[in-house]
Design a binder for these strands. Sequence first.
DNA 1: TTTCTATTGCAACTGATTCTCAATTACAAT
DNA 2: ATTGTAATTGAGAATCAGTTGCAATAGAAA
Lengths: 143, 143
Amino acid sequence: MEDKIFKEFLEKKGLKFTKERAAVLKEVFSTHNHFDPDDLLIKMRKKGIRVSKASIYRTLPLLLECGLVEQVEKIDKHAHYEHTFGHGHHDHLICTKCGRIISLFSEKLERLQEKLCKKENFRSISHTLEIRGYCSKCNAKLK
Amino acid sequence: MEDKIFKEFLEKKGLKFTKERAAVLKEVFSTHNHFDPDDLLIKMRKKGIRVSKASIYRTLPLLLECGLVEQVEKIDKHAHYEHTFGHGHHDHLICTKCGRIISLFSEKLERLQEKLCKKENFRSISHTLEIRGYCSKCNAKLK
DNA sequence: TTTCTATTGCAACTGATTCTCAATTACAAT
DNA sequence: ATTGTAATTGAGAATCAGTTGCAATAGAAA
Protein backbone atom coordinates (compact mmCIF):
# COMPACT_ATOMS: atom_id res chain seq x y z
CA MET A 1 0.00 0.00 0.00
CA GLU A 2 0.92 3.66 0.15
CA ASP A 3 3.43 3.32 3.00
CA LYS A 4 5.43 0.90 1.00
CA ILE A 5 5.35 2.98 -2.14
CA PHE A 6 6.48 6.08 -0.32
CA LYS A 7 9.17 4.26 1.61
CA GLU A 8 10.67 2.74 -1.48
CA PHE A 9 10.52 6.04 -3.28
CA LEU A 10 12.37 7.73 -0.45
CA GLU A 11 14.98 5.04 -0.23
CA LYS A 12 15.64 5.29 -3.91
CA LYS A 13 16.38 8.97 -3.40
CA GLY A 14 18.52 8.42 -0.33
CA LEU A 15 15.90 9.99 1.92
CA LYS A 16 14.48 8.69 5.14
CA PHE A 17 11.04 7.46 6.03
CA THR A 18 10.75 9.49 9.22
CA LYS A 19 7.84 9.48 11.62
CA GLU A 20 6.86 13.00 10.52
CA ARG A 21 6.70 11.96 6.89
CA ALA A 22 4.80 8.85 7.85
CA ALA A 23 2.35 10.96 9.84
CA VAL A 24 1.72 13.34 6.95
CA LEU A 25 1.22 10.43 4.61
CA LYS A 26 -1.21 8.78 6.99
CA GLU A 27 -3.20 11.95 7.39
CA VAL A 28 -3.35 12.52 3.65
CA PHE A 29 -4.78 9.06 3.20
CA SER A 30 -7.19 9.28 6.12
CA THR A 31 -9.79 10.99 3.99
CA HIS A 32 -10.89 10.95 0.38
CA ASN A 33 -11.53 14.67 0.35
CA HIS A 34 -9.44 17.37 -1.15
CA PHE A 35 -7.30 19.30 1.27
CA ASP A 36 -4.83 22.13 1.45
CA PRO A 37 -1.64 22.19 3.49
CA ASP A 38 -3.23 24.24 6.20
CA ASP A 39 -6.18 21.88 6.60
CA LEU A 40 -3.71 19.14 7.08
CA LEU A 41 -1.82 20.98 9.77
CA ILE A 42 -4.97 21.85 11.68
CA LYS A 43 -6.34 18.33 11.53
CA MET A 44 -3.06 16.88 12.73
CA ARG A 45 -2.79 19.38 15.55
CA LYS A 46 -6.30 18.47 16.67
CA LYS A 47 -5.32 14.84 16.83
CA GLY A 48 -2.29 15.74 18.89
CA ILE A 49 0.19 14.84 16.19
CA ARG A 50 3.14 17.18 16.33
CA VAL A 51 4.40 18.32 12.94
CA SER A 52 5.58 21.68 11.78
CA LYS A 53 4.13 23.61 8.89
CA ALA A 54 7.53 23.35 7.27
CA SER A 55 7.50 19.58 7.35
CA ILE A 56 4.13 19.48 5.69
CA TYR A 57 5.27 21.81 2.98
CA ARG A 58 8.39 19.73 2.57
CA THR A 59 6.58 16.43 2.42
CA LEU A 60 3.87 17.33 -0.07
CA PRO A 61 6.22 17.80 -3.03
CA LEU A 62 7.65 14.37 -2.31
CA LEU A 63 4.21 12.83 -2.36
CA LEU A 64 3.50 14.63 -5.61
CA GLU A 65 6.72 13.39 -7.09
CA CYS A 66 6.03 9.77 -6.35
CA GLY A 67 2.50 10.10 -7.65
CA LEU A 68 0.62 9.38 -4.44
CA VAL A 69 -0.89 12.83 -4.48
CA GLU A 70 -2.16 15.12 -7.19
CA GLN A 71 -2.63 18.83 -7.28
CA VAL A 72 -6.11 20.08 -8.07
CA GLU A 73 -8.22 23.23 -8.22
CA LYS A 74 -5.68 25.72 -9.31
CA ILE A 75 -8.18 28.49 -9.68
CA ASP A 76 -8.23 29.39 -6.02
CA LYS A 77 -5.40 31.26 -4.31
CA HIS A 78 -3.81 28.36 -2.52
CA ALA A 79 -2.82 24.90 -3.61
CA HIS A 80 -5.20 22.00 -3.13
CA TYR A 81 -4.33 18.34 -3.22
CA GLU A 82 -5.89 14.94 -3.15
CA HIS A 83 -4.41 11.52 -2.78
CA THR A 84 -4.70 9.29 -5.76
CA PHE A 85 -3.82 5.82 -4.62
CA GLY A 86 -6.71 3.41 -4.96
CA HIS A 87 -8.68 5.66 -7.24
CA GLY A 88 -6.66 6.73 -10.22
CA HIS A 89 -6.62 9.98 -12.09
CA HIS A 90 -9.86 11.79 -12.64
CA ASP A 91 -11.14 15.22 -13.55
CA HIS A 92 -13.35 17.65 -11.66
CA LEU A 93 -16.55 19.54 -12.09
CA ILE A 94 -16.52 22.44 -9.68
CA CYS A 95 -19.70 24.25 -8.74
CA THR A 96 -18.79 27.89 -8.39
CA LYS A 97 -21.98 28.53 -6.45
CA CYS A 98 -21.84 25.98 -3.64
CA GLY A 99 -18.32 24.68 -4.01
CA ARG A 100 -19.37 21.10 -4.56
CA ILE A 101 -16.81 19.04 -6.41
CA ILE A 102 -17.86 16.18 -8.62
CA SER A 103 -15.20 13.72 -9.70
CA LEU A 104 -15.39 12.28 -13.13
CA PHE A 105 -13.45 9.89 -15.26
CA SER A 106 -13.88 9.08 -18.90
CA GLU A 107 -11.73 6.62 -20.73
CA LYS A 108 -12.84 8.16 -23.97
CA LEU A 109 -11.78 11.62 -22.84
CA GLU A 110 -8.37 10.36 -21.80
CA ARG A 111 -7.87 8.65 -25.14
CA LEU A 112 -8.88 11.73 -27.04
CA GLN A 113 -6.44 13.88 -25.08
CA GLU A 114 -3.69 11.40 -25.75
CA LYS A 115 -4.45 11.49 -29.43
CA LEU A 116 -4.26 15.28 -29.49
CA CYS A 117 -0.88 15.18 -27.78
CA LYS A 118 0.44 12.77 -30.34
CA LYS A 119 -0.55 15.10 -33.08
CA GLU A 120 1.71 17.75 -31.50
CA ASN A 121 4.47 15.30 -30.76
CA PHE A 122 3.97 16.05 -27.11
CA ARG A 123 4.68 13.42 -24.49
CA SER A 124 2.11 13.97 -21.77
CA ILE A 125 2.92 13.14 -18.18
CA SER A 126 -0.08 14.45 -16.32
CA HIS A 127 -3.01 16.73 -16.83
CA THR A 128 -5.70 18.64 -15.06
CA LEU A 129 -9.16 19.26 -16.36
CA GLU A 130 -11.41 21.47 -14.32
CA ILE A 131 -14.83 22.43 -15.48
CA ARG A 132 -16.49 25.24 -13.58
CA GLY A 133 -20.20 25.96 -13.62
CA TYR A 134 -23.36 25.11 -11.70
CA CYS A 135 -24.21 21.74 -10.24
CA SER A 136 -27.68 20.33 -10.69
CA LYS A 137 -28.92 21.64 -7.35
CA CYS A 138 -27.63 25.16 -7.77
CA ASN A 139 -28.79 25.25 -11.33
CA ALA A 140 -32.30 24.33 -10.21
CA LYS A 141 -32.28 27.06 -7.56
CA LEU A 142 -31.26 29.63 -10.13
CA LYS A 143 -34.73 29.06 -11.50
CA MET B 1 -14.32 45.23 -30.44
CA GLU B 2 -13.00 44.71 -26.96
CA ASP B 3 -13.35 48.35 -25.88
CA LYS B 4 -17.01 48.27 -26.59
CA ILE B 5 -17.56 44.98 -24.83
CA PHE B 6 -15.76 46.16 -21.74
CA LYS B 7 -17.46 49.52 -21.70
CA GLU B 8 -20.91 48.02 -21.93
CA PHE B 9 -20.07 45.49 -19.27
CA LEU B 10 -18.95 48.25 -16.93
CA GLU B 11 -21.99 50.38 -17.59
CA LYS B 12 -24.26 47.48 -16.84
CA LYS B 13 -22.59 47.21 -13.44
CA GLY B 14 -22.68 50.94 -12.77
CA LEU B 15 -18.92 51.21 -13.15
CA LYS B 16 -16.92 53.64 -15.17
CA PHE B 17 -14.76 53.20 -18.21
CA THR B 18 -11.81 55.19 -16.90
CA LYS B 19 -8.58 55.87 -18.70
CA GLU B 20 -6.72 53.53 -16.37
CA ARG B 21 -9.06 50.66 -17.16
CA ALA B 22 -8.85 51.50 -20.83
CA ALA B 23 -5.06 51.47 -20.63
CA VAL B 24 -4.96 48.07 -18.94
CA LEU B 25 -7.36 46.69 -21.49
CA LYS B 26 -5.30 48.06 -24.35
CA GLU B 27 -2.12 46.60 -22.95
CA VAL B 28 -3.72 43.21 -22.42
CA PHE B 29 -4.76 43.14 -26.03
CA SER B 30 -1.48 44.44 -27.38
CA THR B 31 0.03 40.97 -27.40
CA HIS B 32 -1.16 37.45 -27.92
CA ASN B 33 1.13 36.06 -25.27
CA HIS B 34 0.32 34.98 -21.78
CA PHE B 35 1.13 37.48 -19.08
CA ASP B 36 1.01 37.99 -15.36
CA PRO B 37 0.00 41.16 -13.53
CA ASP B 38 3.59 42.14 -12.96
CA ASP B 39 4.55 41.77 -16.61
CA LEU B 40 1.75 44.08 -17.42
CA LEU B 41 2.86 46.71 -14.94
CA ILE B 42 6.44 46.64 -16.17
CA LYS B 43 5.47 46.87 -19.81
CA MET B 44 3.16 49.78 -19.13
CA ARG B 45 5.78 51.60 -17.09
CA LYS B 46 8.26 51.20 -19.92
CA LYS B 47 5.83 52.78 -22.31
CA GLY B 48 5.35 55.66 -19.91
CA ILE B 49 1.78 54.76 -19.07
CA ARG B 50 1.06 55.58 -15.46
CA VAL B 51 -1.03 53.00 -13.65
CA SER B 52 -0.71 51.62 -10.18
CA LYS B 53 -0.26 48.01 -9.38
CA ALA B 54 -3.52 48.20 -7.48
CA SER B 55 -5.42 49.30 -10.56
CA ILE B 56 -4.09 46.38 -12.52
CA TYR B 57 -5.07 43.96 -9.81
CA ARG B 58 -8.50 45.57 -9.69
CA THR B 59 -9.05 45.58 -13.42
CA LEU B 60 -8.08 42.00 -14.15
CA PRO B 61 -11.01 40.43 -12.28
CA LEU B 62 -13.35 42.65 -14.23
CA LEU B 63 -11.85 41.49 -17.49
CA LEU B 64 -12.20 37.92 -16.32
CA GLU B 65 -15.79 38.49 -15.36
CA CYS B 66 -16.78 39.82 -18.74
CA GLY B 67 -14.92 37.04 -20.48
CA LEU B 68 -12.31 39.09 -22.30
CA VAL B 69 -9.56 37.40 -20.38
CA GLU B 70 -9.01 33.89 -19.12
CA GLN B 71 -6.88 32.58 -16.34
CA VAL B 72 -4.31 29.96 -17.24
CA GLU B 73 -1.44 28.12 -15.64
CA LYS B 74 -2.18 28.40 -11.96
CA ILE B 75 0.58 25.84 -11.50
CA ASP B 76 3.21 28.41 -10.83
CA LYS B 77 3.06 30.59 -7.77
CA HIS B 78 1.40 33.50 -9.46
CA ALA B 79 -1.61 33.87 -11.71
CA HIS B 80 -1.24 33.97 -15.48
CA TYR B 81 -3.74 35.32 -17.93
CA GLU B 82 -4.39 35.62 -21.62
CA HIS B 83 -6.94 37.59 -23.55
CA THR B 84 -9.49 35.58 -25.43
CA PHE B 85 -11.23 37.93 -27.78
CA GLY B 86 -10.62 37.07 -31.40
CA HIS B 87 -9.34 33.61 -30.68
CA GLY B 88 -11.77 31.70 -28.55
CA HIS B 89 -11.17 29.24 -25.79
CA HIS B 90 -8.39 26.73 -26.09
CA ASP B 91 -6.39 24.37 -23.95
CA HIS B 92 -2.69 24.17 -23.22
CA LEU B 93 0.15 21.72 -23.45
CA ILE B 94 2.86 22.86 -21.07
CA CYS B 95 6.39 21.57 -21.39
CA THR B 96 7.69 21.19 -17.87
CA LYS B 97 11.23 21.11 -19.16
CA CYS B 98 11.55 24.26 -21.25
CA GLY B 99 8.32 26.03 -20.35
CA ARG B 100 7.03 26.14 -23.88
CA ILE B 101 3.27 26.43 -24.13
CA ILE B 102 1.37 24.99 -27.03
CA SER B 103 -2.19 26.09 -27.54
CA LEU B 104 -4.66 23.59 -28.79
CA PHE B 105 -8.31 23.48 -29.64
CA SER B 106 -10.43 20.50 -30.50
CA GLU B 107 -14.08 20.74 -31.28
CA LYS B 108 -14.39 17.07 -30.58
CA LEU B 109 -12.87 17.46 -27.14
CA GLU B 110 -15.21 20.30 -26.29
CA ARG B 111 -18.20 18.30 -27.36
CA LEU B 112 -17.15 15.32 -25.33
CA GLN B 113 -16.69 17.43 -22.24
CA GLU B 114 -20.11 18.94 -22.73
CA LYS B 115 -21.60 15.52 -23.02
CA LEU B 116 -19.98 14.41 -19.79
CA CYS B 117 -21.36 17.45 -18.00
CA LYS B 118 -24.84 16.71 -19.22
CA LYS B 119 -24.60 13.27 -17.78
CA GLU B 120 -24.02 14.83 -14.36
CA ASN B 121 -26.63 17.50 -14.86
CA PHE B 122 -23.89 20.05 -14.59
CA ARG B 123 -24.12 23.34 -16.41
CA SER B 124 -20.60 24.22 -17.44
CA ILE B 125 -19.53 27.83 -17.72
CA SER B 126 -15.83 27.53 -18.35
CA HIS B 127 -13.02 25.06 -18.08
CA THR B 128 -9.31 24.66 -18.05
CA LEU B 129 -7.38 21.76 -19.45
CA GLU B 130 -3.66 21.71 -18.92
CA ILE B 131 -1.55 18.84 -20.05
CA ARG B 132 1.96 18.78 -18.68
CA GLY B 133 4.80 16.79 -20.16
CA TYR B 134 7.62 17.14 -22.67
CA CYS B 135 7.43 18.98 -25.96
CA SER B 136 8.86 17.39 -29.09
CA LYS B 137 12.20 19.17 -28.78
CA CYS B 138 12.76 18.35 -25.13
CA ASN B 139 11.58 14.83 -25.64
CA ALA B 140 14.15 14.40 -28.39
CA LYS B 141 16.90 15.73 -26.17
CA LEU B 142 15.98 13.30 -23.43
CA LYS B 143 16.79 10.79 -26.12
C1' DT C 1 30.80 5.15 20.01
C1' DT C 2 31.90 8.28 16.50
C1' DT C 3 30.90 10.31 12.24
C1' DC C 4 28.16 11.70 8.61
C1' DT C 5 24.18 13.26 6.48
C1' DA C 6 19.38 13.97 6.45
C1' DT C 7 15.67 16.03 9.13
C1' DT C 8 13.30 18.71 12.20
C1' DG C 9 11.01 23.00 14.33
C1' DC C 10 11.12 27.55 14.71
C1' DA C 11 11.14 31.99 13.34
C1' DA C 12 12.39 35.19 9.95
C1' DC C 13 11.62 35.96 5.27
C1' DT C 14 9.71 36.42 0.53
C1' DG C 15 6.75 37.75 -2.99
C1' DA C 16 2.11 37.94 -4.73
C1' DT C 17 -2.16 39.84 -3.86
C1' DT C 18 -5.48 42.63 -1.16
C1' DC C 19 -6.74 46.32 1.67
C1' DT C 20 -6.96 51.04 3.69
C1' DC C 21 -7.56 55.64 3.16
C1' DA C 22 -7.20 60.20 1.80
C1' DA C 23 -7.28 62.68 -2.40
C1' DT C 24 -9.27 62.85 -7.18
C1' DT C 25 -12.49 62.35 -10.77
C1' DA C 26 -16.80 61.58 -13.50
C1' DC C 27 -21.25 62.57 -14.09
C1' DA C 28 -25.95 63.79 -13.15
C1' DA C 29 -28.72 67.20 -11.02
C1' DT C 30 -29.05 71.85 -9.77
C1' DA D 1 -20.65 76.57 -14.02
C1' DT D 2 -21.33 74.45 -9.38
C1' DT D 3 -22.44 71.01 -6.29
C1' DG D 4 -23.27 66.42 -4.44
C1' DT D 5 -22.56 61.69 -4.64
C1' DA D 6 -20.42 57.63 -5.60
C1' DA D 7 -16.81 55.44 -7.94
C1' DT D 8 -11.84 55.45 -8.57
C1' DT D 9 -7.24 56.21 -7.95
C1' DG D 10 -2.20 55.65 -6.10
C1' DA D 11 0.80 54.64 -2.45
C1' DG D 12 2.02 52.05 0.91
C1' DA D 13 0.73 49.02 4.74
C1' DA D 14 -1.14 44.60 5.75
C1' DT D 15 -1.96 39.80 4.81
C1' DC D 16 -1.16 35.31 3.68
C1' DA D 17 0.64 31.17 1.50
C1' DG D 18 4.71 29.21 0.94
C1' DT D 19 9.99 29.06 1.63
C1' DT D 20 14.35 29.26 3.79
C1' DG D 21 18.33 29.58 7.20
C1' DC D 22 19.93 27.66 11.08
C1' DA D 23 20.98 25.34 15.28
C1' DA D 24 19.59 21.22 17.48
C1' DT D 25 18.42 16.20 16.76
C1' DA D 26 18.10 11.61 14.89
C1' DG D 27 19.57 7.45 12.40
C1' DA D 28 22.42 4.69 9.80
C1' DA D 29 26.95 3.16 8.72
C1' DA D 30 31.68 2.64 10.06
